[in-house]
Design a protein around this nucleic acid. Structure first.
Lengths: 139, 139
DNA sequence: GTAATAACTTTCATAATGCAAGTAAAAATC
DNA sequence: GATTTTTACTTGCATTATGAAAGTTATTAC
């Protein structure tokens, strides 16, 4: 696992790992759309290129942000799941969404509002709910 | 103007704007180190290249995340400051720092802990304090 | 007047991304 | 059992972004 950290700063170190335009979108799709296979990720709204998707899945697995597994009786489809490290990206993603909701009104259509409204009034409750749901999905 | 946004998603839209390895570090330095000039940003721990710094300052200004101004009697030094839109990136940055604190223990030395400890127990209070401090700086 | 400083810009090499097409194994269909 | 489809990639190549270093211009300090 070759990790090139620019400094000892916790902010720059996180950006060294997930500071790109695609990694958090894969995590988003796992969290909120229940996506777990390569082809599901490949069909995202933002049209990620397959080589980039492949590269990011490999990196996220190396970083232990996601796991790669199989289902019994299926040797073909890879099932990706969030590790604890990956699940804990949720608060970051929610803050990003809320910032956009507050500051990108010129661009975001009303379709984006309902998502943010789900947690805006009770963020901590929403997070705990999501964590519980993550557990259920595994069990 | 080039197509800036990949989709209507608030998460991907934010990443379209600040989803790179440098933008948030400039904001970090403005928030926590009181940096406000080109040369101050240029001296960061992470050694940003001057062409990238120039590019990011221009972009952040175009996005109205920062303002560019001068001090009276000085035609040379540019003074950069955070807009409201920029200040509101604080919660994102704090969540990123906390994620690193929780999940990058192998890499982060103890030097990174004190920063996170400042807000870990009372994040909302810390944020409000910082917002108040931002106001004071503007005078 | 000369030197130093601040804020860039330019050049060029390297790395990352994007697009299209191709591949291989497994699974589904006929 | 053979053929088609699906899944998960890989490869090649053009474009774009980044990184390192040196150069430029205006301003300020000495």
């Amino acid at each position: 696992m070759k990790q090139k950290f620019r400094s000892n700063c916790p902010i720059s170190s996180a950006l060294d790992l997930i500071g790109d335009k695609w990694s958090l979108l894969i995590i988003r799709d796992m969290m909120f759309s229940g996506k777990k296979t390569y082809s599901e990720f490949s069909n995202s709204n933002e049209k990620i290129a397959t080589n980039i998707l492949s590269n990011r899945l490999t990196m996220l697995e190396e970083l232990e942000i996601i796991n790669k597994g199989k289902l019994e009786g299926n040797k073909k489809t890879n099932i990706y799941s969030l590790t604890q490290k990956g699940k804990e990206l949720l608060p970051i993603i929610l803050e990003i969404a809320q910032w956009s909701d507050n500051n990108l009104n010129d661009h975001l259509q009303d379709g984006a509002k309902p998502f943010v409204n789900k947690f805006k009034s009770n963020k901590e409750g929403f997070i705990q709910n999501m964590y519980a749901r993550f557990e259920k999905q595994e069990g």
